[in-house]
Write a protein that binds this DNA or RNA. Structure first.
Length: 417
RNA sequence: GUGAGCGUAGCUCAACUGGUUAGAGCACUGGACUGUGGAUCCAGAGGUUGGGGGUUCGAGACCCCUCGCUCACCCCA
């Protein structure tokens, strides 16, 4: 093999027939999102780097080490979006969308970019289906979003998952909790692993995530965020869970569920599965009540979720079948011209494939068979003489002759069914 | 960024302890077969064994470097 030009690390070509599966999932997602009142908002794939530094958060792993950042010819620092939420917030402020009747609901399906080391279920270009709600502080919406996600999963035939929920508090109650947690960890610092010792300063919430047994045992005695929420956050969390129960959704409170984005407040949640390897989250999200304000917009709260399309697809066994089509066969120049005209007509009603390499009848039938044609339409000497063309159903071998008008009528009535 | 495993034809894989000109199945193209496909048979095309260096009379195999893929850590979709 000569020097290869390949897709770059962590990116993938999505080829037919795999693309059918994507279209199928995307279509179902759109239908569900629209049904819950969401409308599509398409933002650019790149933004000012600053948007993510402020939005996603300077201390998040995403901003610290995972962004595709570059300088354009005008000297601006731009970044391929690693997530969607800051872009929507920016668009809302940009276009004063908050002046429209609120709450606002948007969805989007598209690629995201993170400079991560690729592994199972994790790519540098990956795709998310994302929904966001602004200016709805009632915990009912938190529950509704989760209920909608269960509907989406059901629509695409995914059943093997668990719902984890948590509350991470807000800027009023979280700092004092973090302080408490740090103090508890400091007392047993010597017994913790080096990683955990670093976590005490950097990200104490991660102390609960350590895989080492001794650390886990110690962490079990650390104070939990869910026991240290402020009054309002506490009420929100209780109500949220109440509404989940009202909607008949089973879930597990997981106080360790922190999520890597700095901006979350109160509700966070994740849908996990055992079928994905180490990257077990198929969908995740939460509330970000402070973001809009931080960008100088109005003080509107927000909540959203992102579904990982690759991860979702890897759980879906189903492969949609190819649509039916006619492979048109001809045997002479005169037949070719008739075939071209007929194909143009028939395509108003049915998929047609016409090929231009001269082949024998046998050869063309063989090719039609390989390509999976539902029917072949034969235009040979006899057909040209009589003006009646032979339509052959490939699976059964049954064939019959039709005038061109009758053919069109035949497929038109099929389409109406 | 750290660690481990793996790189032979488009795909799946062979090639003994290092030993001729690196093979097979599937797929592809053509033919047997000039108006009836799926089957069978024949033929063709397809490789710098990821790349570079080293050891050796001799390397697909052994050693070093490098690139790529995969999985895991961190973190996340």
């Amino acid at each position: 093999m000569k020097k290869k030009v390949t897709a770059i690390k962590g990116t993938k070509d999505i080829l037919p027939p795999e693309t059918r599966k994507w279209q199928w999932v995307e279509e179902r997602a759109r239908t569900v999102f629209e049904r819950y009142g969401y409308r599509e908002l398409r933002a650019p794939v790149f933004e000012a780097t600053e948007l993510f530094e402020k939005g996603t958060g300077e201390s998040s792993d995403i901003v610290l080490k995972e962004m595709y950042t570059f300088t354009d010819k005008g000297g601006r620092s731009l970044t391929l979006r690693p997530e969607y939420t800051p872009s929507v917030v920016r668009a809302i402020i940009d276009h004063r969308l908050y002046l429209q009747p609120r709450p606002l609901r948007f969805y989007y399906i598209g690629p995201m970019f993170r400079y991560d080391k690729p592994q199972k279920g994790r790519y540098r270009q990956f795709h998310q289906m994302d929904i966001e709600v602004f200016d709805e502080k009632d915990p009912g919406i938190d529950a509704e979003i989760i209920q909608m996600a269960t509907v989406l999963l059901k629509q695409v035939g995914v059943a093997d998952y668990q719902i984890l929920v948590n509350s991470v508090g807000c800027p009023r109650c979280r700092p004092s909790y973090i302080q408490k947690l740090r103090e508890a960890a400091q007392k047993v610092r010597e017994k913790l692993c080096p990683d955990c010792q670093r976590r005490i300063e950097i990200n104490p919430l991660r102390l609960f995530d350590c895989k080492i047994e001794t650390c886990q045992a110690l962490a079990a005695n650390f104070p939990k965020i869910t026991d240290n929420l402020g009054e309002e956050c506490q009420q929100h969390f209780i109500q949220f869970q109440h509404y989940l129960q009202v909607l008949g959704i089973s879930y597990r409170v997981e106080p360790r569920l922190v999520r890597g984005l700095d901006y979350y407040t109160r509700t966070t949640f994740e849908f996990v599965t055992s079928a994905l390897g180490a990257q077990d989250a198929i969908l995740g999200g939460g509330r970000y009540d402070e973001m809009m304000k931080q960008f100088g917009g109005p003080d509107l709260c927000g909540i959203g979720l992102a579904v990982g399309v690759e991860r979702l697809l890897s759980l879906i066994k189903f492969q949609p079948s190819n649509p039916e089509f006619i492979y048109i066969i001809y045997l002479s120049e005169e037949g070719k011209e008739e075939a071209m005209k007929l194909a143009a007509e028939l395509r108003k009603e049915v998929d047609c494939l016409l090929e231009y390499k001269p082949r024998s009848l046998r050869n063309q039938l063989s090719r039609a068979n390989k390509l999976g044609a539902t029917w072949t339409l034969i235009i040979g000497e006899d057909e040209l003489k009589t003006g009646r063309f032979t339509l052959k159903h490939m699976a059964s071998g049954h064939q019959a002759s039709y005038s061109s008008a009758a053919l069109l009528e035949h497929f038109k009535s099929r389409g109406d069914q």
